[in-house]
């Protein structure tokens, strides 16, 4: 630091601690609520310290079937979310890395056109064209299936641009050497490009896993069969109850379970996460 201001250091620590508390506050409240019995919410104010109903709350939501609102076991939803997040992340990476390879290492008619078609997807978030996209998926008979849940979200301009950028920085000599040694395009891709972009793939995977896991409106529209519900989309159906009080401890236990996997991924792979975040925006 430039000069020593004791009070500025104290102020900075206070700001950061306050920030950490504000950021953690909603999740703390949700966790506390999930550890109480439903009767704890009748009194008018939610408790601020954990109760002793932790294990029953979580086993009840994971098994499901305790009441009409909780008919679908959360473990099923967690499984569906995992399938969806993994398929979207892997699918996006595979089709993007292949198309970036084609665009950088080949010259062919309509290359520019293909590039622009991919670029357009960047401009059309699913929320904006939701009605016609839903129509296409339903006409293809893809409602209530994992294919309908994942494939329409799999095209990715960002990932294609990222891999294009990575490939452009790979030295020409590698390609020349590979060709002299008699390697075809697929061998070069598999043995040189893929190992060289390993960390980029990993960083991107972290970001895309979170993206896939957190999808909301698309699963709500595409799945009406409760066997395909994902956890993030399922919470809303649980909280929307007519006539009776929502079962707060179950809703909050489900919320905690829904946010835990991606949060753990971010914390455990913080360096890859930051790398992925910065790269996908450049």
């Amino acid at each position: 630091m430039v000069e020593n201001h004791r009070w500025l250091d104290v102020l900075a620590h206070l700001t950061l601690i306050l920030g950490v508390l504000i950021v953690a506050f909603p999740v703390y409240i949700a966790f506390v609520a999930s550890t109480h019995e439903p009767s704890a919410f009748v009194s008018g104010l939610i408790p601020l310290l954990p109760g002793d109903n932790l294990v029953p709350s979580y086993t009840d939501v994971l098994k499901g079937g305790t009441s009409a609102q909780m008919s679908v076991p959360i473990s099923t939803m967690l499984g569906n979310s995992l399938i969806m997040a993994l398929s979207i992340a892997v699918g996006k990476i595979v089709i993007s890395i292949l198309s970036a390879f084609a665009i950088v290492y080949f010259r062919f008619p309509f290359r520019q056109a293909a590039f622009w078609v991919i670029f357009l997807t960047l401009m059309l978030p699913v929320e904006v064209r939701i009605v016609p996209t839903f129509k296409v998926v339903s006409e293809l008979g893809m409602l209530n299936s994992y294919v309908g849940l994942t494939v329409p979200l799999i095209a990715s301009a960002t990932a294609t641009f990222l891999f294009r950028q990575v490939f452009l920085t790979i030295p020409e000599e590698l390609m020349e050497a590979a060709r002299i040694d008699g390697a075809g395009p697929l061998k070069f891709f598999w043995d040189v490009l893929l190992p060289m972009s390993r960390t980029n793939v990993a960083a991107l995977f972290v970001i895309l896993f979170i993206y896939g896991w957190n999808q909301y409106i698309w699963p709500i529209l595409v799945t009406t069969d409760s066997g395909y519900y994902t956890i993030v989309a399922g919470i809303k159906r649980m909280a929307d109850v007519v006539d009776s009080e929502p079962l707060w401890n179950f809703i909050m236990a489900t919320s905690v379970l829904a946010l835990l996997p991606p949060v753990v991924v971010v914390i455990a792979m913080q360096r890859l996460f930051v790398k992925g975040l910065v790269e996908t925006e450049k």
């Binding site: 999740v27 949700a30 957190n214 993030v232 809303k236 946010l259 971010v266 913080q270 996460f273």
Partner: peptide, 15 residues
């Protein structure tokens, strides 16, 4: 401070 990035907007809303 960075973990809320991973929380789904829908869950943030519910909380």
């Amino acid at each position: 401070l960075v973990w809320p990035y991973a929380v789904a907007p829908a869950i943030a809303g519910v909380l």
